[in-house]
Each structure stands twice: as structure tokens, then as C-alpha cells.
């Protein structure tokens, strides 16, 4: 099941990369995709039953993506403003952030989303304790609960619906 999902995904990527499609190219792509799916299928899709739930796609496309794009734009304007400001208003530091997420994919998306949003960047994850170490360009809260609300709270409740 998980190999089949990876095969379809890999073939789709191949088709988009080699657009416009023709028969020999499509056949070669099917061969390559089958090889990739056979070798690495178990690594990528560990819980295929989650992919059958349409509510998760709905949450991903219409709640996570808009929130993420909006935060990403804000992040860029914010960092650009700090860089262009002659006084360079930064107050950097590394803070702890607590997270409830446990799954690999959920943590990856949370860490990536944090890295791409306002002045925050994931440095390391302690999975056992559920702690993320975040480098902030402007530290507002060093205390863990307040920092969690400020930094991961924006995404965590959405990602929990999608990946947990």
C-alpha cells in the first residue's frame, strides 16, 4: 500500500519534470518510479491509513497552507525591515519551545514551518521530552510556556489535526 502511494507520487513528479509526455518517456518513468518505490517505499509512508482520511487533506489545503503562507509573508517583511533598519533592531537568542506532536511527519512540518516564519529557526529537537530549541532574531519571551504559545502555537493545533 505505502509502496503504491510512493509509486504514484514519484511517477507524477517524473511526468511534470519531463513535460510534455510521450510514450517512451512515460514508460521509462514508470520503471524508475517502480524501482524507487520498491527500494524506499517503507521509509516514506509509514502509516498509509492516514492518507485515506479526506478531512486531513481539507485541513492541509484550506487551513494549514493559508496560515503558513500568511505567516511566511509576515516573516519576510519583518526580517527585511530589521535588515534595512539602520539601527539593526535585533535581540537574538535560543529559547525552548514545548510541543505535543509525536509523529515524524508532524514534527518535520512543525520545525520547517517554524524555520520559515517570523524571526525563528529550529536548531534542534529533543523528541523524548517534546522540546524544540528555537533561535529567534528578536526574543520576546524566554520562559518556555509563553514562548511556546508565541512560536509553535500558531501551527501546532492545525498540524495535530493533520498528522496525529
Amino acid at each position: 500500500m505505502s509502496k503504491l502511494i510512493l509509486f504514484v507520487f514519484a511517477w507524477l513528479v517524473w511526468c511534470l519534470l519531463t513535460w510534455p509526455p510521450s510514450l517512451p518517456v512515460l514508460l521509462a518513468g514508470a520503471g524508475v518510479a517502480a524501482l524507487v518505490a520498491y527500494l524506499t517505499g517503507d521509509l516514506f509512508v509509514k502509516r498509509p491509513h492516514l492518507l485515506r482520511n479526506p478531512v486531513r487533506y481539507w485541513y492541509f489545503c484550506f487551513i494549514f497552507l493559508p496560515v503558513f503562507v500568511w505567516q511566511c509573508l509576515r516573516a519576510n517583511v519583518d526580517v527585511a525591515w530589521r535588515v534595512l533598519n539602520p539601527r539593526l533592531p535585533i535581540r537574538p537568542g535560543i529559547v525552548r519551545v514545548h510541543t505535543e506532536l509525536k509523529s515524524d511527519v508532524g514534527l518535520t512540518f512543525l520545525a520547517n514551518a517554524i524555520t520559515l516564519t517570523p524571526g525563528t529557526m529550529t536548531v534542534d529537537i529533543d523528541r523524548g521530552a517534546g522540546v524544540l530549541y528555537i533561535h529567534c532574531i528578536y526574543v520576546k519571551e524566554t520562559e518556555i510556556e509563553a514562548a511556546s504559545r508565541e512560536i509553535s502555537g500558531r501551527f501546532e493545533y492545525i498540524l495535530r489535526e493533520i498528522f496525529e
Binding site: I90, P92, G93, I94, D126, Y133, T142
Partner: peptide, 13 residues
């Protein structure tokens, strides 16, 4: 970290 940094929780842990 830069000397103006306010906290470094990572090196503490």
C-alpha cells in the same frame, strides 16, 4: 552566539 544575545537554552541543555 553573538555577544548581544539574550539567552542560549541550547547550550544549557
Amino acid at each position: 552566539l553573538w555577544e548581544g544575545s539574550v539567552s542560549d537554552a541550547y547550550s544549557e541543555d
